[in-house]
Design a protein around this nucleic acid. Structure first.
Lengths: 245, 245
DNA sequence: TCTTGTTAGATTGTCGACAACCTGCTTTTC
DNA sequence: GAAAAGCAGGTTGTCGACAATCTAACAAGA
């Protein structure tokens, strides 16, 4: 028998492609938080029927990127400072656990992949491509979760990462200034290659601290001028929450 | 202005009801792991069109209770011993964190709710209603997550709890023997009311240990006779994995 | 006998149209 | 003039039918 094992072929349903398109639009900020998604308009633009579009939207609702209010519409999730804070603190706990699981599993391939992703971040930084920089930084960060060999945690991380990417993209887009040119991940990578697990865990916390504190401050400042509002395409306050009986 | 605030009315879409029905069927074991869901048949039984049914199924796929293979079908997730182990270890970490967050927020209402849920478990035990016993035990356990005031963690816990409930229901259903009559949650509740947080965290780990070890052993024993198979309505091995590009 | 090509049946994916519902404006009534 | 009733207009939820794809059985050829 041939010893090659082929990778499973990609699934080619419209639904899957729509999910990818919408997710990308949300994560890059083309679709802004609170904005309403008009099914008819989007379906026409994508040259697709509403059925697969709606199914795709249900997926993203469960993924936490959209919220749905029956008979009113589906909206991009609204980001509050507390959401970011919650995601941040849970992320710390997950990271600590991921490092613990990954630690004994580190091997040559791990270190190579670590360097590869680190390099991708540096490349994006050189290119001044902020969107890609966020994306690659999260991928670098996600390696320990992928390597930990715990499917439930990986899934949890991916959900978290989606939202984190959205938050950061929003932030970067707001302050127009260019990205920090220094390599803030240098120490993180070196510690993951080292022998002191506790040190790596400790740094993971503090390193993220830096990014997050700034993000949080920005989110809180937005919260202030919330009463001004009156944006079109905004969900009418909290009106009807999906039940999880 | 009136100071009453009313609870949001339940959303009355068919989709939501279908989700609830299907979830219940999976969690109680009416739909068995690996089983295929025939859309036409289910739609007819529920007197509903396929559109809302399919949307409901997409939600449950994202919730982790179903898996979908394009053009092949949607199946109840297959439970491996490793899945249970993964969920178990993540659950430990989450619990520890939840107790930490909840600890300073405990008040009279918390203790009352704790007792209420504890009582519900004892009632279900008296009734010899194993399904309800699992459900109430998880609700008791989930209180610390609901109280922690961290929306992201709560969401994570709910996803985890769904799967745990499914695992336990499967287990209970397999071994026909009646449920342990003693109150194994007595110590847990008392510790949550006490003053020693570390002790509560420690116990949470070990208390769950007991239940899980048995569950794991059962799952592993199932794994052995996996080659025998040949069940109808089974997904044809790993054929095509949904991508998360 | 084994492999390959074909075909029929069943199931999933997608479409266009209709019904239910919400929103804002107009009309009516006091 | 103000509040209630009623009427479009548009959007979401649902339906039934068609197209694309998979599975399994069968036939043809080596």
């Amino acid at each position: 028998m041939g010893k090659l094992d082929f990778a499973p072929i990609a699934d080619t349903t419209r639904r899957a492609e729509i999910v990818a398109l919408l997710r990308r639009a949300i994560l890059t900020g083309q679709l802004k938080p609170g904005q309403k998604l008009n099914e008819l308009r989007i379906a026409e633009q994508m040259r697709v029927s509403r059925a697969p579009l709606r199914e795709a939207m249900r997926e993203l609702v469960q993924e936490g990127l959209l919220t749905s209010i029956p008979y009113a519409g589906t909206f991009v999730v609204d980001v509050t400072a507390k959401d970011i804070d919650d995601a941040y603190s849970l992320n710390k706990v997950l990271d600590e656990f991921a490092i613990e699981l990954t630690w004994p599993l580190r091997d040559q391939r791990f270190f190579e992949e670590l360097d590869r992703r680190h390099e991708a971040v540096k490349q994006a930084t050189r290119d001044l491509d902020t969107t890609r920089q966020i994306e690659t930084a999260l991928q670098l960060h996600g390696l320990i979760h992928e390597w930990a060999d715990n499917s439930v945690m990986l899934e949890t991380w991916q959900r978290l990462a989606s939202r984190l990417q959205m938050y950061f993209a929003l932030h970067q887009r707001a302050r127009k200034e260019p990205v920090p040119a220094e390599d803030i991940h240098e120490i993180y990578v070196r510690l993951l290659k080292g022998t002191d697990m506790r040190a790596a865990q400790r740094h993971a916390r503090e390193h993220i601290d830096l990014d997050f504190e700034e993000l949080l401050a920005y989110a809180r400042s937005l919260e202030q001028r919330d009463s001004k509002g009156a944006d079109p395409d905004r969900p009418g306050l909290t009106r009807n929450r999906p039940e999880s009986s």
